[in-house]
Nucleic acid binder design. Sequence first.
DNA 1: TGGGGTATCATGGGCGGCCATGGGCCTCAA
DNA 2: TTGAGGCCCATGGCCGCCCATGATACCCCA
Lengths: 183, 183
Amino acid sequence: MRGLGKRRTGWRVFVSTYESAIDAKGRVSIPAPFRAALGGGTRIFLWSALDGSGCLEGGGEALMAMYRATLTRLPPQSPVRKALVSTIFAGSADLKMDETGRIKLTDELIKVAGLNGRVKFAGNIDSFQIWDPDKHAAFTTAMSETAAKPETLAALGEAYNDVLRQHELGHYPDLKLVEGGEG
Amino acid sequence: MRGLGKRRTGWRVFVSTYESAIDAKGRVSIPAPFRAALGGGTRIFLWSALDGSGCLEGGGEALMAMYRATLTRLPPQSPVRKALVSTIFAGSADLKMDETGRIKLTDELIKVAGLNGRVKFAGNIDSFQIWDPDKHAAFTTAMSETAAKPETLAALGEAYNDVLRQHELGHYPDLKLVEGGEG
DNA sequence: TGGGGTATCATGGGCGGCCATGGGCCTCAA
DNA sequence: TTGAGGCCCATGGCCGCCCATGATACCCCA
């Protein structure tokens, strides 16, 4: 892909939201910051979001490795595990980014997500989502309403304080979080 | 087989689902990504899925080596081990891929899986499944319904967080805890 | 602080190679 | 001899690779 430069030292997290177009061949440019978050990998996995929200969810090999490790913690023949393997592994498209950072969405993916012309890429920490812009707008509105609720804020504050306390109390003695550079 | 080039090197996992045809001679093309996941091996083992779901399950030599190692952990004469050896080892067809990446399914396999004309190859992480397309559609629907249940999502999230916590530092090398105080 | 230059990025389009599939020929066994 | 399986070549469609272009954001320098 075109050089990513050294913008935003590599911290492999999917942040922010970007819009891009689906061309006549069904190709979509992965936003450059997301390509950086993929850590140079060119293999993209995409599946229909489990919760039925109507978006696509996806990531690179690192994410799939995480899911693989996760699923092996569930009882092998349990309905839960089978459902997740079927949905995430069997259900995902295994796409390869081209040299300019694009992937070709399958008709199936376009259909289930109701995509048409333009898409929104939304960062989701370890993964990202692909939305139809209208659906995304509705989703965003609903989310910000929930976020503003006192319970939400309280839950955030509590969890945040837990983390803070753990660091302070020496659960991780003398350690602090920093951003790593490229090298 | 036709050169796979260097596409999708690394990471031998069976992901995604592909459809292909059974030709007049009973041959089926193994999807190219699955051939890559087989790591260049041309020997395919296939048996009727243990859970009675009506599909075939299979993989390459790596998978059988795993099963071999697994079964030797069970008491030699235990009914469990005998049943598994009988189903997986005695019950498998040992097929060889031809130069173009096809295998010939036995009549037995076609019959137990109810195959007819076209088949679906579904990735299953370390193994893959072969389905009649209609059965597969029904299975997929059932699985995505289960996957969308709050309990399932909760179980996934919990297991994921466990893995995250365990690998917190290892998997995100750019986000590291370092020694050192304020200075 | 403003303007020009440059690097990066999103997008369009052409082309070759890969892949799924069809089919022929040879060998071997019944 | 016939049918089945193994091996090979042929082919058409599609995917991935590549080049090109315009737009934009960023940087540097005046």
